[in-house]
Write a protein that binds this DNA or RNA. Structure first.
Length: 231
DNA sequence: TGCCAGGCCGGGT
DNA sequence: ACCCGGCATGGC
């Protein structure tokens, strides 16, 4: 075990990823509401499948809180079919827009004014929103400074033995937030870069692949210069 | 063909 | 407080 990474190591990893992948321009969504819908639709699902569902909603002019509030959940489910778990996700989208209407008159700007800690608790209380989805919404829709942890984060940092495979969401999040400056631009780019690395090089989530020394997927070589292939 | 993808919920210990 | 089955499509 290498043990927990220092602040310097986390920043070194960031600089390396940034040099390799460049600016990520996240989240891939044009409006805060689109970001929120995307965050729910991409749960445990390939982004391309979620993106196709969002295109359907756009085409039907339904990508707005007022529109989603009105349509029957069954029709919504059919439109987002490609995102998988479509019945669940239709309910989840409905539960978010209900909350938005009940608590903020459907106004995302009003919701955004709430403090980070309070808003996070509120989001976690909504059906279908767990820690990662809540933090994605806070960071990418509302611009709040939180570090988003996902499967790639755990996989990549566990492969480097910076954390254990059993580390909880909160433990991993604390690791980053205790060491990095609380800067929403940095958190934004860091998470996006982790996903960029993960998508390209970090397939195979099964336990048997975790120990396979022949697979370099998801590993960073921190010793080689950025100009060389770091993987 | 089977395995996997930017999780979360609810019921059981 | 954990653990686990269920939820489902599209790509390789």
């Amino acid at each position: 075990m290498k043990g927990q990474p220092s602040a310097e190591t986390l920043q070194k990893i960031y600089r390396k990823l940034s040099a390799v992948f460049g600016p990520q321009h996240w989240w891939p969504g044009e409006t805060p509401f689109e970001v929120i819908v995307g965050a729910i639709l991409t749960q445990n699902t390939a982004w391309t499948n979620a993106a196709a569902a969002i295109e359907n909603l756009k085409r039907e002019r339904l990508l707005a809180p007022s529109a989603l509030k009105k349509i029957p959940v069954g029709r919504l489910a059919r439109l987002i079919r490609s995102s998988g778990y479509f019945n669940q996700k239709a309910r989840r989208l409905k539960s978010f827009v209900s909350y938005l209407n009940d608590s903020y008159q459907g106004d995302l700007q009003k919701m955004r004014r709430v403090s980070l800690a309070r808003l996070r608790n509120q989001l976690l209380g909504i059906f279908g929103i767990g820690p990662e989805t809540a933090d994605s919404i806070l960071l990418y829709a509302f611009g709040k400074p939180v570090f988003v942890v996902d499967a790639y984060t755990r996989r990549i940092f566990a492969r480097h033995s910076f954390i254990g495979w059993e580390a909880t969401y909160q433990e991993i999040q604390q690791l980053f937030m205790d060491r990095l400056p609380g800067n929403n631009s940095l958190f934004n780019e860091y998470h996006a870069l982790v996903v960029a690395l993960g998508k390209g090089f970090c397939q195979k989530t099964k336990p048997k692949c975790r120990e396979c020394p022949l697979r370099k997927v998801g590993r960073l070589c921190l010793e080689t210069p950025a100009a060389a292939n770091p993987f």
